[in-house]
């Protein structure tokens, strides 16, 4: 039973690490601001859930697990809000979606 939980948490941790890494790669390599934002914000949410739940399985029922739940709830509330505020601010200030070459010339 214990080893099954271990394997499950390792799978979750590995998947979370892969998600986080892909998000970083996307934020660096994608051509446009909004595509970069897409890569960063989506993998932020998924990577956070996978890594924190993976750690939570290792922690078991303890104070650490409660703190991890608090961190998870906090991040899941704030990360999409920050992403939305960022996209909204960019859109209001006139960053155009698409056509990355024109955007580069402007900025």
């Amino acid at each position: 039973m214990q080893s099954a939980v271990d394997v499950l948490s390792w799978i979750l941790l590995a998947a979370g690490g892969a998600f986080v890494f892909v998000g970083g790669l996307g934020a660096l390599r994608l051509p446009d601001f909004y595509t970069r934002m897409h890569a960063a914000s989506l993998t932020d949410g998924m990577g956070t859930i996978l890594i924190l739940v993976g750690i939570m399985l290792q922690a078991g029922w303890s104070l650490a697990a409660i703190k991890l739940i608090a961190i998870l709830v906090c991040l899941l509330l704030t990360s999409p809000t920050a992403s939305y505020a960022l996209a909204n601010a960019a859109l209001l200030s006139g960053v155009e979606p698409g056509n990355s070459r024109a955007g580069k010339a402007e900025n």
């Binding site: 960063a40 990360s79 960022l86 960053v95």
Partner: peptide, 25 residues
């Protein structure tokens, strides 16, 4: 643009939280 930098900083902060939780264990 300045928003790309803000996106990167936001991402860096979230990853810092994750790194701190992993390092704790």
């Amino acid at each position: 643009s300045v928003y790309d930098r803000m996106l990167a900083v936001n991402m860096f902060g979230t990853k810092t939280v994750l790194l701190l939780s992993v390092i704790a264990f």
